[in-house]
Write a protein that binds this DNA or RNA. Structure first.
Lengths: 120, 120
DNA sequence: GCACGTTCAACGTGTTCA
DNA sequence: TGAACACGTTGAACGTGC
């Protein structure tokens, strides 16, 4: 039987293997990272061609504009609809604290990671 | 068909479906967990904006400060009178940064990413 | 049975490296 | 550019006490 694991696990943007829901869309790691970087840096990106470039696994690098377009078309969005842009979702202190923790912290990191099948 | 609309089963904080009374207010699971975590960890949380952020089901994650504010406004509180199970909560609330900084340790590269059984 | 605390997978974000 | 890692919050499921 064709199990459910390979069927609905395709990236909504390029068709690559999706790793989960990122920014409200089922996407791969590549499109997740691309969207995160691009949507802030180049919101007004325009396609030098017809604006209908193919966005497949192999072609996705060729036209960032159309890729971003398809990301948005797939429903990807930063969750900042009504509020102005939050620099960080939590305490708005992305700088010193994170840096400090990163440099000086040794976390035990004892995640049990038991098999717990939850439906979400 | 159950008349769900007549039942006032909405979270007093975010309007999501409430699961019962938690900390003296009718709230959802999310706000219950949020309040329990936050009221101990970051009692001095402040909103980086005007302090009047929307706290709805969709927006509740964006501003913990305003969410906590609304939790308190809804009447949520830790009842330490009869449930003083905690030996000593160790507050001192010097700010969220110190909470991380006082860990003061060294980074350790552990492969925390175990095989996670994604079942979705 | 309800309320509380705990657990942990899912997810967002920053960083690093090839 | 993208895979992997690090670290945090979130919230549903779960166990427990009253």
């Amino acid at each position: 039987m064709v199990s459910e694991e390979d069927e609905p696990k395709n990236c909504a943007v390029c068709g690559d293997r999706a790793t989960g829901y990122h920014f409200h869309a089922l996407t791969c790691e590549g499109c997740k990272g691309f969207f995160r970087r691009t949507v802030n840096k180049y919101p007004g990106l325009t396609c030098p061609f017809a604006g209908s470039c193919e966005v497949s696994r192999a072609q996705r690098r060729h036209c960032p504009a159309c890729r971003l377009q398809k990301c948005l078309a797939a429903g990807m969005r930063k969750d900042t609809s009504s509020l102005s842009v939050h620099p960080s979702p939590v305490f708005a202190h992305p700088g010193p604290c994170a840096a400090f923790a990163h440099t000086h912290c040794r976390h035990q990191h004892l995640h049990g990671a038991a098999n717990r099948q939850v439906h979400q």
